[in-house]
């Protein structure tokens, strides 16, 4: 029996030290040196140095004068975040979407974009498809009494166009830029 026990126990101990301690420590060391910003959570600070969030994590935005993030099944909780996990056939899904689309619809602008009425997988989706951001322009322009073209420019400046993925715009970046606009 000892011929199995000793190698089993010593190898699990050794692998623990190697893959469970040395490996993550080494990666942390290199990451902190080479990619300090990302390794610490892509944090955003304001001018006073206060932490205002992470560029990767969605924030809730209430009020007509802000670009709104996608709805979150977990109400933007971060520990831990949640998804709706509603089946396509679940009547609750249709009910929720019917209610939300009624609230969000802007007369004369056509159907509400899918992203604005569906909750994301993470509950913390930081982005919006470009069309979903553009759909909000007229509402924000009216609430802030500014020109819609300026908002369109902001969206364009913040749009990411990766080769292998859809065009999206980061909502927090967009609203930070919006906050700096002259009223």
């Amino acid at each position: 029996m000892n011929s199995y026990l000793r190698p089993a126990v010593s190898l699990i101990a050794l692998m623990t030290v190697l893959t469970g301690v040395a490996y993550p420590l080494a990666i942390t060391g290199v990451a902190q040196l080479a990619f300090n910003d990302q390794a610490n959570g892509s944090l955003i600070h304001d001018n006073q140095g206060h932490l205002r969030g992470s560029s990767l994590i969605a924030q809730p935005f209430d009020g007509a004068q802000w670009f709104q993030s996608r709805p979150s099944a977990g109400s933007f909780a971060t520990v831990s975040s949640g998804a709706s996990n509603l089946a396509p056939s679940n009547p609750a899904l249709r009910e929720r979407i019917a209610g939300d689309s009624e609230k969000l619809a802007v007369a004369g602008q056509g159907a509400v974009p899918m992203a604005l009425v569906t909750t994301s997988g993470s509950g913390l989706d930081p982005d919006l498809p470009v069309a979903a951001a553009q759909y909000q322009i007229s509402r924000i322009a009216a609430a802030r009494n500014i020109d819609g073209a300026a908002l369109q420019r902001l969206i364009e400046q913040n749009t990411q166009r990766p080769l292998i993925g859809p065009e999206v715009v980061n909502v927090l970046a967009l609203n930070l830029a919006l906050a700096e606009q002259p009223q």
Binding site: Q38, L43, L51, R52, Q59, F61, T78, V79, A179
Partner: peptide
């Protein structure tokens, strides 16, 4: 290392408390 470069955290820091743009509290895990 590629993933850290793309934005995956790699730190032993405790969770951080942020004040969102609209003044709410957000704990970053």
């Amino acid at each position: 290392l590629f993933l850290v470069w793309q934005g995956v955290p790699q730190t032993f820091s405790h969770y951080l408390d942020a004040l969102t743009l609209q003044g709410g509290e957000q704990s970053l895990p």
